Simulated assay, not measured.
Amino acid sequence: MTSLPDAFRSAARGAGATADDADLDAAAQYLLGRWSEPQRHYHDVTHLASVLEVIDRFAHLTPHPDRVRLAAWLHDAVYDPRALGDANERDSAEFAAGLLQSLGAPDEVSAEVARLVNLTAGHATEEDDPDGELLCDADLSILAADAERYTAYAGAIRREYAHVPDDAFRAGRSRVLTELLNLPSIYRLAPIHEEWEERARANLKAELAELA
């Protein structure tokens, strides 16, 4: 089984980074340190590994899978549950561009990975954006989990927002779930939609009813 640092190095190389192996490994370890920060209960290394697993499984559906893999590594590089609006995604995108440039990635790649990271703020993609669709679908794959894993996910999200009073959390979380349910499709790529859409919507509706 490929280790996460090996997976990062492979994706960076595949996307055109020219830094040597030592610098790529150092970047991977630095990112894993970020993904292991104490405020993370769901947005942690387990989430990163799960997103990468989905991307690997459906990599054939996208023209630039290594860019998508790098965006997965970087989409929650900055994660503060107290941040307002899309600040985490914006800061992660800015960080992504800077890191990839420092690793010798082409400017086009750095800019594109930053664009992909920004998409995870609302998980809304334009037409004909299979790279963006795969990243968003992979990021939302937890929504189609079995009941036990979904319950664990919802509990982990609550722990990340432990600073928010119950009433405010229920209102905010209900708004997020409703926005997801109002998307024309939670999952955009056809094979993923066919496999996961129905189960994800059932999970979201069940949690929404519980919150009410």
Rank of each mutant, 00 (worst) to 15 (best):
M1P: 09
T2K: 12
S3V: 05
L4F: 04
D6Y: 00
A7T: 11
A7L: 10
R13G: 11
A17T: 11
A17K: 04
A19S: 12
A26Y: 04
A28H: 05
Y30T: 15
G33S: 09
W35V: 05
H41I: 06
H41G: 00
V45S: 06
S50Y: 01
L52C: 01
V54E: 04
D56K: 09
A59Y: 04
R67Q: 14
V68A: 01
R69I: 05
Y79T: 00
D80C: 09
E94S: 14
E94G: 13
A97E: 13
G98D: 08
Q101Y: 02
P106E: 05
E108S: 12
E108G: 07
A111K: 06
E112V: 03
A114Y: 08
R115I: 10
R115P: 05
L119Q: 12
D129E: 13
D129T: 08
D129C: 10
L135W: 02
L140N: 10
D146Y: 09
E148W: 01
R149P: 07
T151Q: 15
Y153D: 00
A154P: 02
A156L: 01
A156N: 09
I157H: 04
R159L: 12
A162W: 08
P165W: 01
P165R: 00
P165V: 06
D167Y: 02
A168L: 11
L181G: 11
N182P: 01
S185K: 15
L189K: 03
I192E: 06
E194C: 07
E197K: 12
L208K: 10
A209C: 08
E210Q: 11
A212E: 14
